[in-house]
Design a protein around this nucleic acid. Structure first.
Lengths: 203, 203
DNA sequence: GTCTATATATTGATAGAC
DNA sequence: GTCTATCAATATATAGAC
């Protein structure tokens, strides 16, 4: 089974499952609504009133569950990377000792993709809204994010040393392609992408 | 000269040039300030007061030059893709008739990268802030954006038919990697990237 | 062309009734 | 646990002096 097929196959299952997590308590409903808004509308458009409307309550009622808007946002962003982190770590641990760097990289990619789809609002929120968070909140969320990025940095380094990645391609480019563009210059990614995909070395 | 070297070489030149465009009239200063803010802080954080502060005037004075905030934002976003559009189109037109699809793709990539660096605040604003614009404004800006995307769609299709891109890789992925992740599922990009770079077909 | 002052709307958050 | 009502801060935008 190719990665594409695995991803497509799981897409339907995750769509059905996303409703199940709505059955949880009021706090979870608020988190779900916030994740959706962060993903599709961004941080500033994720107002307390917008969150409340999606849940079906009034804005003031939110503060019975959470002390502030940023507390909610922080939990959503962190859950987004935490859940993917666990999935990738588990997948790597389950690999036999004789797995090659390439095996490990592919297992990590697969685990990342499947897990991202299962929790897609949270993960997408982590990726897409992160760059425009207020500076203080961004600093807080960077801790958990960095923890996950380190896993990939190591995977990429191993793959690079094993010769799977052209030497003049930044390891950051590939890693960040999985974790979202974030604050990365898109041009740097494009350059490396061109080199990887088309061997564009004589421009 | 590789693309990387061309990009690096032009980076300094563009840094020096960016000040030159500040010498223009008051309207241009406002556009420059807005472009910087959209790129680095996002749409909602780009307030009229923040724009005014960067220009060195008061918020109310902006409305002598523009009728509304969204008018300014729309011009910045559209200029960002328009200027790159022109650069790429010119580069393609300058190519000899016997240029292969690969030649054309590489010329387009180079023109895109160099032009992006020259106008990096405007281009970055177009890429990074677009996804979170208010729905109505996003609809307006999509027109100019689509015009540019169509160029790449054609380039990619030609390159694909000539055999430069694996057949099961979405043409969208490569195109959008140049124009920014936008509303594209990052997972789709990651999948295709994995297939291109690592041949990850047995996951 | 910029300023001050202000109108109006919306934000995050709080207080107290139920 | 949710509501209504409200506060203080900040947003876009306007009006008129200079």
């Amino acid at each position: 089974m190719t990665i594409s097929q695995a991803v497509a196959r799981t897409a339907k299952a995750s769509a059905a499952k996303s409703e199940a997590s709505d059955q949880n308590g009021g706090a979870r409903q608020i988190l779900n609504a916030t994740a959706w808004l962060l993903r599709h509308r961004g941080y500033e458009a994720t107002t307390t009133r917008a969150i409340a409307e999606r849940v079906g309550i009034k804005a003031g009622s939110i503060y019975h569950h959470f002390p502030s808007k940023d507390t909610i946002v922080e939990r959503v962003i962190n859950e987004g990377v935490l859940v993917v982190n666990k999935a990738v770590t588990s997948a790597l641990d389950a690999l036999p000792n004789k797995a090659t760097p390439r095996d490990r990289l592919q297992a990590a990619i697969k685990a990342h993709l499947l897990s991202s789809l299962e929790h897609s609002d949270y993960t997408s929120a982590s990726i897409r809204a992160f760059a425009f968070l207020p500076p203080e909140l961004r600093r807080t969320c960077r801790v958990e994010r960095r923890r996950y990025e380190d896993i990939w940095q190591q995977l990429m380094r191993d793959a690079s040393e094993a010769g799977y990645i052209p030497k003049d391609v930044s390891l950051d480019a590939a890693r960040l392609m999985l974790l979202g563009a974030g604050r990365v210059p898109i041009d740097k990614i494009a350059t490396d992408f061109a080199q990887i995909a088309f061997g564009a070395r004589r421009a």
